[in-house]
Design a protein around this nucleic acid. Structure first.
Lengths: 192, 192, 192, 192
DNA sequence: ACCTAATCGAGACGGTACGTCCGGTCTTACT
DNA sequence: AGTAAGACCGGACGTACCGTCTCGATTAGGT
């Protein structure tokens, strides 16, 4: 993710953590674009150059912070009941959004991505693509067990499920368990 | 939409049009947030103050420009076939996005709305809400005719359909007729 | 002196004075090159851009401040006694150097001029050249009255008198009345 | 000259020379204060630390480089004709200034000395003071032989002669043989 | 000839200032 | 009164160097 990474061996891990932590906490407090690189450096107790040495923009920093905070959270369970498993997974994401800085960061990244194609691509590679893969595997396994029709359009199914969550997030609409139930009800009514 | 409207009687309509046109053309060329108020004023041949007198931010200007360009376009047909009518309507929106400055403007407004709640609300009131209303009416009429089950969750249905389009737009994924077909297939499989 | 002067009619005189005053006071306190443009702007309560709009560098600002503070001070008396008149004039300059911010500013300007030929030229035009002219006129009048030999090399005489003062200033050597007397004694021993 | 000399036995002479050479060549090309310690280190193929280990500042480095290049050059002849001897010595200095990197280095050192009293003192001790001594001895010998009046103010004489050269150097005025003649003519008209 | 400690090139680090851009406000002269 | 023009204060941008610091790798002297 670094713009043009120097020797990562010489990197100061203490500074890296301080920068990522400062990013998320500031964005949580002030919102993505009321946060400047200067402010991140100030809060992290770090020189601006140290940020620009390892990342090419605020977006890259925040993306790394978001990825870090997302990584350990989202796994697909496989209990044999695909709808129940998805309910668990989607609920986990919604809670991550609601209860951590991740929501604000993700909103900001999508927003920034609209005028920074590199950032949008990086966001895709690091956050969207892994989910596409995992979702595809879980669905395939459900198809093999006959839980879901073999000809179901997996990609569209995924876009619908995650798209509606992002849509409500970006439009500042609340996302509650009932919404997830309703979404799953409609989308799985005809595919199993 | 004016922030704190002075006397609108004395307003120079020539300047207003120049500003709205400059906004859309600049955003089409450079993307929403590579466009500054200064640049809009420069291109429109207008003083900065003239913009700030009538709008409270770049977002308001662009929203007005977007609304203007949207107004006459997307209506819900009612042929008695709800899925076919939706296909027509959704296709119309996708074409509007693809072929006019509206797409860039809308993307930018969603992005800007993430850190400007007033703008997001205005965007909702002027662009989203009318669609919700129209969609609700069309669906109700379909329910009355028995095309769609009476207990179908209309709001969730709408979020799914428009959410997935916005999702693909914001993630720079192409939206083609086949995608619309697939989305309609899944969402209407169980509701009629 | 402005780098590329905009319309001077629109200029804010209050800001101009604040900037010149801040320059001299800061240089007096900290020395020429411990003073940054940022610090001048801060002390003057002014945006950096307002400095860069009217001057092209710190040097230009300080030169204008120095010239302003020099202007009213140095005039050549003409009592008919050239040596006595020079003693008065030189003493005035030495006192200006000792007792005001002018000394520090002038030192800094000479120093900065060593790597900024434009600044050195501006310094020459605004401070050195007028002195050359005035000195030349006073000497000529002395020659006409027979106080000084007609074939005396006026330019060299001037360089010696003012050069030795600058030399002692730049080498942090004290300059006292006795030094001026000694200099005048040697240089005028043979020319009258 | 080292700031706080470590063990000079272990010093790498190859690096020392590379640093001094790089200093002078860079200053010749770019002027004293367009040259940074980083640039010297880069050109010399040396780590910054190696510079800071042995010198306390850029000024110290340049002073050592200048002293090295000055050492063998300017001696006072003693032919019995004081004016002629001075003409030779002054001409030698002027040529050193004009034809080697010494001029740029000296200019820069004077400039830097204005805001670094330690450097100015070092410059005095290593370059000015030896000249004062030598000049004093040569003048004394001239006085003993009756070439120059016994009560001539030697210190003032020296300041005048070398001050006027430095003055013209710092003001980017040319220094030619005629100037030296004129200066000697005025200053020695009354003292012999 | 070996060992160990200092020096070396390299370059990351926390900082400060650079000169530029733009945000939003205010002022001036013209229409 | 509205407008085009643009100066104003402020704050962030991304870059260059400062002087300090940490790394192995090399190189010296003392044994």
């Amino acid at each position: 993710m670094p713009a043009n990474p120097p020797d990562p061996g010489r990197r100061n891990e203490r500074s890296r953590r301080a920068i990522l932590d400062a990013s998320l906490s500031l964005i949580g407090e002030l919102g993505y674009d009321n946060v400047s690189v200067e402010a991140i450096a100030r809060r992290a107790g770090v020189g601006k150059q140290t940020i620009y040495r390892w990342w090419s923009s605020k977006g890259e920093v925040v993306l790394e912070a978001a990825t870090d905070s997302l990584d350990p959270v989202v796994v697909f369970p496989d209990t044999g009941d695909i709808v129940e498993d998805l309910r668990v997974q989607l609920t986990g994401i919604v809670e991550l959004i609601a209860n951590t800085g991740f929501g604000s960061a993700y909103q900001g990244l999508i927003a920034a991505g609209q005028s920074d194609r590199d950032l949008l691509r990086a966001l895709h590679d690091q956050i969207i693509a892994p989910n596409i893969t995992a979702f595809g595997q879980r669905l395939t396994s459900a198809q093999e067990r006959g839980e879901v029709r073999a000809d179901a359009d997996v990609q569209t199914l995924r876009d619908l499920l995650y798209g509606v969550i992002e849509y409500r997030l970006l439009h500042a609409m609340p996302i509650e368990p009932g919404h997830i139930d309703a979404v799953l009800a409609i989308t799985f009514q005809g595919v199993r």
